[in-house]
């Protein structure tokens, strides 16, 4: 068992603030209220910050550390299918795809949400519909993300949710 420092404070703070913000806006806040808008702006700001951090941040926070790769993702799927347990220190290839998916979905949700507040697009059907479909997509993605984290924690014997709190992975 070796303890490896993987997630810096920026990555962890981003993860949990966005998680809380998204949950609040998807489930709790009044979609027509000011609070919903402000949380939306905050999430957009955080995502922009995370993208900058992905270019300049610490080793495992950088996009270069988890490039979107079909081959690596298939290799990880095949590890799962064959019951093999090769752990990844930073983001796993499938995890990387999920991150890009969530970042892009959040941006699209923020953009369509903002459009609904402008005079040009206020009350236009397809904008609202797009916003709602994107939110459903993101909700399903979040559920898949949680299921994936739990499944991978069990498969690899590493508590991944805990590592997103403490910043350390306990590699077997």
């Amino acid at each position: 068992m070796t303890k490896v420092k993987v997630w810096d404070p920026v990555v962890r703070a981003f993860h949990w603030t966005v998680a809380v913000g998204f949950a609040a806006n998807a489930l709790l806040t009044d979609a027509e209220g000011k609070l919903h808008e402000w949380i939306g702006y905050a999430i957009f700001f955080l995502v922009c910050l995370r993208i900058l951090w992905g270019l300049t941040g610490t080793r495992h926070a950088r996009f270069a550390d988890f490039p979107p790769s079909v081959e690596a993702a298939v290799a990880q799927l095949s590890d799962m299918a064959a019951g093999r347990n090769h752990p990844h220190v930073g983001h796993s290839p499938l995890g990387a795809w999920m991150i890009y998916n969530l970042l892009l979905s959040l941006i699209a949700i923020c953009v369509t949400g903002y459009m609904m507040t402008t005079d040009t697009f206020f009350g236009i059907g397809w904008v609202e519909e797009a916003h709602e479909i994107l939110v459903t997509w993101a909700e399903v993605s979040v559920l898949a993300h949680i299921a994936g984290a739990v499944y991978e924690s069990r498969r690899l014997g590493i508590n991944l949710p805990k590592s997103m709190v403490t910043g350390y992975k306990e590699m077997p």
Binding site: V74, L77, S78, D79, M80, A81, A82, R84
Partner: peptide, 10 residues
């Protein structure tokens, strides 16, 4: 897919 990947892995 799982079957395909498993066979390929073996």
């Amino acid at each position: 897919l799982a079957g395909l990947l498993r066979r390929q892995a073996h």
